[in-house]
Design a protein around this nucleic acid. Structure first.
Lengths: 219, 219
DNA sequence: ATTAATTTTTAGCCTAGACTAAAAATTAAT
DNA sequence: ATTAATTTTTAGTCTAGGCTAAAAATTAAT
């Protein structure tokens, strides 16, 4: 069944909200991320339920069905592959590609996305370290930790980010934190859980807990 | 001012219809190419006129203004650059790229299209030999003839096509007629104006006047 | 120069997807 | 266990961009 642009955006956002939790997703949380009003969301949830892409009970929240999830995954796959293209082939920075990929992810062509995948040499992660779902909807399990979970004096490698807003990515860039950086946790402030880090052989930097939470690393 | 997808498609089609003629364009001809009904076209023409992209007088047809033309040219530029990308980088055939480029041409990002242009090495023509407008809306003048205009016994080079429907392109491919082929006009049938051609050193082929009309060549 | 045929426009209707305001259900707080 | 606060849904409106049917203008044909 064909999906409209609006439907695809809802499914993608519901997927993101489902990821974190076992609970059903609230109308309001969807309204926030789609930048729509709750009433509009209710409307759309009823349509999506009709089409069999979500299970939805009045006042009780919403979940993706298997079909809904596979649609969401195919959009995420397209989004992330296009991001790789924009960074690797066209020379964009990692903080510049989100908006454009938001448009490109809706281009409809099965062959296109597979040819693109092959052209890019079948990347497993996008420029933010997020895994790229396979054509079958499988997500490579990367087993990353949040930097905020790493113990004192441990060393790890920066593998990705849990948030790809431009301001956050620009902050990391300014701090010289980029994919692949070797990080040593020098200090964890008990008061505010801010972290002191050594990047490779450079002099230490401080980051807030909020930043540490959104950095993904591998030990 | 922002352009919607529907508006962009109208402008593009009006541009194509204007190209051929000095006359104003009829509502019906637009309806045919957009696959809409005449009544819908009238509606849209009034909106486009409001926005200053066409000049339009009831019952008297329509023309693009300078602004309208520059919008149309930027869409055509995007369409043709994406076609080059699809063929050169992703390995599509020339008869497979139209539909996908119809979608990609609406992606909105000035930087994207210029980075793409540079990535493709600033091509002057698309995979069908059509000129690619510059960022400033200039169209490289190629001075091609229709094969149907070439005189008996003259030799020419196939530079492009005047029609890029998949069936036409597939026919050319089957006849071994591709961009750059050297063609010698062996015979022109006065009865139906069909043409006998020699391609390079191979044995002659016959094509109809209709086909010859849609092949662009350089002497 | 009328009449006939064709083209174009108007008028009114439809759907998708948004909105606001008000009603209903759920959750939290006394 | 009520009341209050919050969340969600319903009901009704709006706009973009289509549609059909009928009216008006233009063009063609006698």
């Amino acid at each position: 069944m064909a999906t409209s642009l609006a439907e695809e955006n809802y499914l993608k956002i519901i997927y993101r909200l489902c990821e974190g939790t076992k609970e059903d997703i609230s109308t309001n949380s969807i309204a926030e991320l789609t930048n729509n009003k709750a009433a509009s969301v209710t409307d759309m949830l009823q349509k999506l339920a009709e089409k069999g892409w979500v299970t939805y009970q009045k006042y009780q929240g919403v979940r993706l069905t298997n079909i809904g999830e596979s649609i969401a995954l195919s959009i995420i796959r397209k989004h992330r592959l296009w991001e790789v293209f924009l960074v690797e082939k066209l020379g964009y920075n990692w903080d510049e590609v989100h908006e454009i990929a938001e448009q490109l992810e809706h281009i409809e062509s099965e062959t296109l996305i597979n040819k693109l995948d092959s052209f890019l040499d079948f990347p497993k992660i996008d420029p933010h370290g997020d895994p790229i779902p396979s054509q079958e909807g499988e997500i490579p399990e990367l087993g990353y930790l949040h930097l905020s979970e790493v113990k004192l004096n441990e060393t790890c490698t920066l593998m990705g980010v849990a948030k790809d807003s431009a301001v956050f990515l620009q902050l990391l860039t300014k701090l010289n934190l980029s994919l692949g950086a070797r990080l040593e946790v020098l200090e964890i402030n008990t008061f505010d859980r801010s972290v002191s880090l050594k990047i490779a052989e450079e002099k230490p930097i401080f980051i807030s807990h909020e930043v540490a939470k959104n950095i993904l690393v591998k030990i």
